[in-house]
Design a binder for these strands. Structure first.
Lengths: 198, 198, 198, 198
DNA sequence: AATGAATGAGCATTCATTCAT
DNA sequence: GATGAATGAATGCTCATTCAT
């Protein structure tokens, strides 16, 4: 499995610039910022990506992929549906342990900025949000089938509550530069999820 | 109390540009946008504000003030603490009725964008978030004193949950361009608040 | 008849940059060249013209207008149709006398460069060429009506010959940096025109 | 006479890129265009030519050589001096028959673009123009000696008229995208040349 | 108090050229 | 001899800000 030089550079650009995009926002990040972050020249960056947009999109996919993969792995290590749902609050509560999560939620970072000017990025965030919601809903339905979750649980409602709590708490963490609210919100979410147990 | 011509122009600039900042974001809004929105010249805008930053800050204060005042008025019209807390979910559930709320939550709009590049704006959002939290906490404490809210209620926890749910749901509304999630989240919040009743 | 400051600047830009466009070609002229030629800043140039294209187009119109006006004036000073046609070779033969003609024929300068990339400029050159041809044809027809030009003269043929000779000779003048061929060609054209006399 | 691999690649580059230079102009042609046209890599092109300029120069020589050779062959197939001179208008009148002429006259293509920025290219066009003129002049002198052309013919004048007419008419063909004027001009040239007959 | 012409640093992007492989 | 990743100067253009009027 040979990796070409170009593939390595592409990956390097994405990995090195991801934190910049997360910190400065997609619009606030200039090509010069990307040069500083990567140590590469303008020409090299443009040799590997068609334009700034393509880099932003790749970085979003990279960030979202990282989080998704992490959750998947942890979910697969669980024994029942309640534990599966608990993976989210438990991870985010201690997210400082996972370096690639520290930049915050990629969706949140993208969501509020991406406007008409960044239609593609907004679409990406939208789709990601949809996938996340569906995953939770399916998790709950499966739990009901397996008699691990109360039969009368409103799967959609729970998914909306979970996502809202996580994103809202993340926003506060970002603005306040501390995790107090994030921890409180995640603890509440844990109680709420545990209450779904039959 | 005489209002000078200058004060009037300042107010006009703030009021006319507030929706622009809310829609395009603080960074995405150019001086030209402000000229278009106000019908005023570059020189006039710079005659009334030192720079774009000062306008952005004033607009944030204006937006936040509007929402705060609206909540205050509705809160004063209530009869007990539970109803007071319910003002938040009830308002946001139907926020399309209030034109000045339609651009979303000013804090959320500011929070995710405001960074090192917009330190002052971030500080403003931080402070606003703190005030909001304190207001809810005080509301709950007062409710407990008045025997309208259960004695063992964790005021801080409830305030964090409320703010997280509202902001997280708003974010989804913004990304998805629909209110489905916002309504579900606000309904949940209503149930949760009603449960605090003694 | 008040001229605004902006109108003056626009004229200044056109007049000062016209020779640059003529010398370097429309594509070979950079905004920096325009700054050097005018002594104005980038922002000022873009404050007066939407983009480089608009400047190039304005310069073409300016150049073509100058030549056209000069010819018109000289034509109006003549007494008969033969003399009118002679204005062209006589002017170009001594074109070094007219500073604004020295940059050469604006149409020729534009014509060979203007490609798919400069569609608008090509269209301009095309239209100018058409107007010129029509003017000559009409001159000849008028001469025939007035019995000043032989009845059997092929107006179209003469116009094509005149324009071809002038443009072809101009091209040689440009490449060779001397007027030898231009003078020979214009003298031939004079003989040819005088032969049209009844 | 062995041809090295390198010589073959050089020829391939010249032949494949010649039409590109003719269409887009020397300045408007980028190295990427040359890669697309040849199917070769950047490194390969730069391995065979020192820089873009050297390619442009080689292409000019190639184009001019093609036209020159074509004329020579047709001239050698004629029986007298008048027919020899007629080769030019007759060829250009039907130039669409000769694929390598269809991009227009290489001299014209080069002449108007080549400037201070393309000093060498301009020099090349100048020299080519001189060779062409001399060739015609010699043709006429030879015709006079052989009593095929009127003794009092001004060889220089005729050569200037021929070249001017051809180049001027070609320019119109290029701008107008049709051959109407070219045909008219070439027919006139034919009449003019036939008139030189003793 | 208001205008709008002018500034210049900054932006995203292109392009001729080099060089390790 | 050929590749293509990397360079960095240059390009057209935007934008917050200033200042003479």
């Amino acid at each position: 499995m040979k990796t070409t030089k170009s593939e390595n550079t592409k990956r390097l650009i994405i990995e090195k610039t991801a934190p910049v995009f997360n910190t400065k926002g997609y619009a606030g990040t200039s090509i010069n910022d990307l040069m500083d972050a990567t140590g590469l020249s303008k020409g090299c960056i443009y040799g590997n990506f068609q334009n700034k947009d393509e880099i932003a999109l790749s970085v979003f996919d990279h960030n979202f992929g990282k989080v998704t993969q992490h959750m998947k792995e942890r979910i697969l290590a669980t024994e029942n549906s309640i534990e599966r749902l608990l993976v989210y609050p438990q991870t985010y509560k201690n997210y400082f342990r996972y370096p690639y999560l520290q930049a915050g939620c990629p969706i949140l970072n993208t969501a509020t900025e991406a406007d008409d000017t960044h239609a593609k990025l907004k679409e990406r965030a939208q789709k990601a949000l949809g996938l996340w919601k569906t995953a939770i809903v399916n998790q709950i339905k499966r739990g009901i089938e397996r008699k691990e979750i109360k039969e009368d649980t409103d799967a959609t409602e729970i998914s909306v509550i979970m996502i809202s709590m996580i994103e809202g708490a993340f926003m506060q963490a970002k603005v306040n530069n501390h995790m107090t609210e994030l921890k409180i919100a995640m603890s509440f979410l844990e109680k709420l999820i545990k209450n779904l147990k039959v």
